Simulated scan of single mutants.
Amino acid sequence: MSQETAAEATKTEEQTHGVTLTDAAAAKAKALLDQEGRDDMRLRIAVQPGGCAGLRYQLFFDERSLDGDLLRDFGGIEVAVDRMSAPYVQGATIDFVDTIEKQGFTIDNPNAGGSCACGDSFH
């Protein structure tokens, strides 16, 4: 492997994050974007201070590219994580559930030391 190829491989590795999007979540995100006729947006997960447990997730569609974004593609849906949030969501899985009891995106985060009853924040 040439030095240039090794450098490119390292650069590619540095641009990814450890969040996983399940097939169900990718399909739902893609369906929502298709419904809106948008192919210029990505799904962004971020962590912000707040909530009753100290940190709050933000999961939203975003057309912006922030400096230092870490990106991964899941079947045509790009998931973006900013560099500050990445350590907090490393290894997290975003899923979509559709049952009688609950419908929506869920985040299973092994880094969360504890969470609140509503599930919107963690520490």
Results as ranks from 00 to 15, higher is better:
Leu21Tyr: 09
Leu21Lys: 09
Thr22Tyr: 07
Thr22Pro: 02
Asp23Leu: 15
Asp23Ile: 12
Asp23Lys: 14
Ala24Asn: 15
Ala24Thr: 12
Ala24Cys: 09
Ala24Pro: 11
Ala25Leu: 02
Ala25Phe: 07
Ala25His: 06
Ala26Gly: 13
Ala26Arg: 14
Ala27Glu: 15
Ala27Thr: 11
Ala27Trp: 09
Ala27Phe: 08
Ala27Lys: 15
Ala27Ser: 14
Lys28Ala: 10
Lys28Arg: 11
Lys28Pro: 00
Lys28Asn: 06
Ala29Asp: 06
Lys30Ala: 05
Lys30His: 05
Lys30Tyr: 04
Lys30Leu: 02
Lys30Met: 05
Ala31Cys: 03
Ala31Glu: 06
Ala31His: 07
Ala31Asp: 12
Ala31Ile: 04
Ala31Tyr: 06
Leu32Ser: 14
Leu32Ile: 15
Leu33Asp: 03
Leu33His: 06
Leu33Asn: 07
Leu33Val: 05
Leu33Gly: 03
Asp34Leu: 08
Asp34Lys: 14
Asp34Tyr: 04
Asp34His: 09
Asp34Met: 04
Gln35Met: 14
Glu36Asn: 13
Glu36Cys: 12
Gly37Glu: 15
Gly37Phe: 15
Asp39Glu: 15
Asp39Trp: 11
Asp39Met: 14
Asp39His: 13
Asp40Thr: 08
Asp40Val: 05
Met41His: 11
Met41Leu: 13
Met41Asp: 14
Met41Ile: 14
Arg42Met: 14
Leu43Gln: 08
Leu43His: 08
Leu43Phe: 05
Arg44Lys: 10
Arg44Pro: 01
Arg44Leu: 05
Arg44His: 04
Ile45Glu: 12
Ile45Leu: 13
Ile45Ser: 07
Ile45Trp: 10
Ile45Cys: 11
Ala46Ser: 08
Ala46Arg: 10
Ala46Asn: 06
Ala46Leu: 06
Ala46Asp: 02
Val47Leu: 10
Val47Lys: 09
Val47Cys: 07
Gln48Cys: 09
Gln48Arg: 15
Gln48Leu: 13
Gln48Asn: 13
Pro49Tyr: 06
Pro49Met: 11
Pro49Ser: 10
Gly50Ser: 02
Gly50Ala: 03
Gly51Glu: 00
Gly51Asp: 01
Cys52Leu: 12
Cys52Asp: 11
Cys52Thr: 12
Ala53Asn: 02
Ala53Val: 00
Gly54Trp: 03
Gly54Val: 02
Gly54Pro: 01
Gly54Arg: 03
Gly54Tyr: 02
Gly54Phe: 03
Leu55Ala: 06
Leu55Tyr: 05
Leu55His: 04
Leu55Phe: 06
Arg56Pro: 01
Arg56Met: 09
Tyr57Leu: 00
Tyr57Ser: 00
Tyr57Phe: 00
Gln58Gly: 03
Gln58Cys: 05
Leu59Lys: 02
Leu59Ala: 00
Phe60Val: 07
Phe60Thr: 04
Phe60Cys: 08
Phe60Asn: 10
Phe60Lys: 15
Phe60Trp: 13
Phe60Met: 12
Phe61Val: 01
Phe61Thr: 00
Phe61Gln: 00
Phe61Ser: 02
Phe61Met: 00
Phe61Leu: 01
Asp62Pro: 00
Asp62Asn: 05
Glu63Lys: 12
Glu63Arg: 13
Glu63Asn: 09
Glu63Ala: 12
Glu63Val: 03
Glu63Met: 11
Arg64Ala: 08
Arg64Gly: 07
Ser65Phe: 07
Ser65His: 11
Leu66Glu: 01
Leu66Tyr: 00
